[in-house]
Simulated assay, not measured.
Amino acid sequence: MKATLVMKFKLENGKSSTISITSPKEDLTGAEVTAAANEMVTKQAFMVGGSPLAALEQAFIRTVEETELP
């Protein structure tokens, strides 16, 4: 199964943006994700269309199972 950490942020301009990270560590906790997201917001690490991240709205792990066809 392939895993992706998905973090949805509200931007300062009122819009939303998603940051996805492939292959997150298996024992990742919500507290670790929240701490990292808060640091990204505080340091204005990402700008989307000229607007910085304002707050984390949602974070989750998406898992996808791939089955090769014979």
Rank of each mutant, 00 (worst) to 15 (best):
V41I: 05
L5T: 07
A55S: 10
K2T: 12
L11Y: 10
T29C: 13
L56V: 10
S23Y: 14
V33N: 03
D27S: 14
A35F: 08
S16T: 05
D27C: 13
E39G: 12
K25G: 07
M1Y: 13
P70L: 03
T22N: 07
T63H: 10
T4F: 10
P24C: 05
V48D: 04
G49S: 02
G49I: 00
M40Y: 09
G30E: 02
E26H: 07
D27T: 09
A45M: 04
V6F: 09
T42A: 13
T63Q: 10
K43F: 00
D27K: 13
P70Y: 02
E32G: 10
M7T: 00
F46L: 05
S16A: 07
T18P: 06
L56N: 07
L11K: 08
T63G: 02
K15N: 10
I19S: 01
S20F: 13
A37F: 10
V48Q: 04
M7G: 05
L28Q: 09
L53A: 03
G30P: 00
T4H: 04
R62P: 01
L11H: 05
I21M: 11
N13H: 04
T29H: 13
K2H: 11
L11I: 10
A3F: 14
F9V: 06
A55P: 00
E12A: 12
V41H: 02
E65C: 02
T34A: 00
S51W: 02
I19P: 01
I19V: 09
M40S: 00
A37R: 08
N38V: 13
A59Y: 04
R62K: 12
E26A: 09
E32I: 06
